[in-house]
Nucleic acid binder design. Structure first.
Lengths: 198, 198
DNA sequence: CAATTAATTGAACAATCATTCAATAAATAT
DNA sequence: ATATTTATTGAATGATTGTTCAATTAATTG
């Protein structure tokens, strides 16, 4: 979807600046004034494109979640046999580089809004359910390929993502890369065991 | 530790009001003025007890984490055979009531500060590592009791908490209690399998 | 080129923010 | 009972917040 209109380009610029500020100060401490300053523009111009701050936050989350989903999408749609696909996918899901594609500070800062905003809550829900469904399909074809019971695909997908979510939640508190890597490796192994990946 | 001094009681009152506001508006949208209003007191009185807002946030997180740890502590120190203890403990860890003992909105709102404040980060780290260590000890005595290999206790404890963290992260996006319960049940079963609980 | 629409400015708004300071009230110690 | 410390008030600070509105500049269209 090309952004032909100037309006859409400007909106994207604003969101990028918002994201940038949110990285260092958090979503809630970001403001229209700060965004305007970064873009060297009047605050009223921000309002011209996003009528309220709520609109701005909502758009940022859309922008974030879409990007998140897109990154996963690319990974999911790689070619190869089901066995190879699932193998590399798990490898990627539990790699720190993967996680670094998106700023965790902004992500959790947005996530914390889930408890006060039903609109945001449903957006997050859609993202996570979407990811689980995608993985489930891949697991399904993997199980089929190996002549195994397909019916457990949903549960396996869910378990894998529970491990992913739980792992990243925890490693953000660990200061050294070594500790983080160790923990990710441990969770990855469990996921591989569950999926019976050799 | 009894709060003899009036000062300590007042501080506790202030933190309780802070927690209350943070529940409905989030940690970052809370303010000294709002706390003062709830307590029907002048804003300057809040400053008298907590010199800066940073102090206030720091104290709230201490208060939260201590309470969190305390709840776990009670559970961990229950009497019974190792087998029974671990069984009921897992049962409790994956029950929604358990999680409801503390407000998730405040918790994740605080957690999101981890990415911008090293002091808060280390506090969260201490909490989570402490919990893992406690569970590890119980698993150890449970394995010993069953004449099994003790060396895997740390890893098992870690895996269980990864499942706990990942599960609660996810179910906060699910609207119906039924969905939440289903997901918790699924994660609990996996934990029980890992621990070989009959 | 003229007319119209869109982009942007700049000034202003009341509200809230964290924090300061001196004055007063209450509690505690001597 | 007096002195001293602590608790609390109340007024004020300058900064920042989200938002409004009219004026101006630039881009697009007829």
């Amino acid at each position: 979807m090309p952004l032909t209109s100037i309006t859409e380009i400007r909106k994207q610029e604003i969101l990028k600046a918002f994201y940038q500020i949110a990285m260092s100060e958090g979503v809630e401490n970001s403001s229209m004034a700060k965004i305007a300053k970064v873009l060297e523009v009047q605050p009223s111009l921000i309002v011209h494109y996003f009528k309220t701050k709520e609109d701005l936050v909502s758009a940022l989350i859309d922008y974030c979640l879409e990007r998140y989903f897109q990154i996963f999408e690319e990974e999911f749609s790689r070619p190869g046999t089901p066995s190879l696909k699932i193998k590399t996918l798990i490898e990627r899901l539990f790699s720190k580089e993967w996680n670094d594609l998106f700023d965790d500070g902004v992500f959790y800062s947005s996530y914390s809004l889930v408890f006060r905003d039903d609109n945001i809550k449903s957006k997050f829900k859609i993202l996570h359910e979407g990811l689980r469904k995608k993985l489930s399909l891949i697991i399904e074809s993997y199980l089929e390929f190996n002549n195994e019971d397909i019916s457990q695909a949903d549960e396996l997908s869910n378990q894998v993502f529970t491990l992913v979510d739980g792992s990243y939640y925890y490693i953000n508190m660990l200061s050294s890369k070594k500790e983080q890597a160790f923990h990710l490796e441990s969770a990855k192994k469990l996921a591989q065991t569950l999926l019976k990946i050799s």
